[in-house]
């Protein structure tokens, strides 16, 4: 479902003398349906960058990057919007929502965008929030006021609301207690069982071992250049 071939990425900082910072070169990997691939490598090696490129959040400089048959590197915004709505889910580390929207609707939002009837979408959202131990009295409040752990769980519920064929997970178990961590891991396992292709970053080694079928070390994709020489 995800196929990356010889992908490279650099940032050009126009306001700092046009410095070009290469951050990735020759990245290649594939993720098959029902498979979970974990990205490893030191902090700053480019794990998140790669995830963001797959999501279409960062532009790729060169190479091929297809998700569900769509070449994200060359797709139009409209195609990416549809890909994200129907095929590609992303659980980031940060919750970014319109303030004031109740938690239940934040979680139901991906389903509503797909045209799911509101009561059905909210029922699905409610069951996920229940599973992730978000007390019902919080559902009508905006998650912007929640603690970090609660926000993370709302984010996960939102990411799993729709059965995306492809999922990107950035540290889904960070800042969770043992019980909630267990819930998230079983959600991931269930997604794999239904055939989702998952690409993830897991610092939690036990979690990684449990859900990942393969690991890819992104250090191999890091350009080996003397800092500053690129400018």
């Amino acid at each position: 479902m995800i196929r990356i071939e010889n992908l490279s990425k650099s940032f050009t900082l126009h306001n700092q003398g046009g410095a070009v910072i290469p951050v990735m070169a020759g990245a290649s990997l594939t993720v098959a349906p029902g498979e979970c691939v974990g990205l490893t490598g030191q902090s700053g090696a480019g794990k998140s960058t790669l995830m963001r490129m797959v999501y279409g959040n960062y532009l790729a400089a060169e190479g091929r990057l297809t998700v569900g048959g769509l070449d994200v590197a060359t797709a139009t915004p409209r195609e990416i919007i549809r890909l994200r709505r129907e095929t590609l889910g992303y659980v980031s580390q940060f919750l970014r929502v319109v303030p004031r929207v109740p938690t239940l609707d934040v979680v139901a939002d991906p389903l509503l965008s797909l045209g799911t009837p509101p009561d059905q979408a909210r029922a699905r959202a409610a069951s996920l929030l229940t599973r992730l131990n978000i007390p019902e009295r919080l559902w009508t409040l905006s998650p912007t006021t929640f603690s970090g752990g609660e926000q993370q769980r709302v984010n996960i519920a939102r990411g799993f609301a729709h059965a995306y064929p492809v999922l990107l997970l950035d540290e889904p178990t960070a800042s969770l207690d043992a019980a909630n961590r267990e819930v998230v891991l079983s959600l991931i396992e269930e997604a794999k069982t239904r055939g989702a292709a998952i690409l993830g970053i897991f610092h939690d080694e036990a979690a990684r071992t449990r859900v990942c079928d393969r690991l890819v070390d992104v250090t191999g994709f890091t350009p080996r250049l003397i800092p500053g020489a690129a400018a």
Binding site: R52, N57, Y58, L59, I80
Partner: peptide, 11 residues
């Protein structure tokens, strides 16, 4: 371009 792409990876 895509809103988040333009804001997060401006060219």
């Amino acid at each position: 371009g895509l809103t988040d792409q333009v804001l997060d990876d401006p060219q």
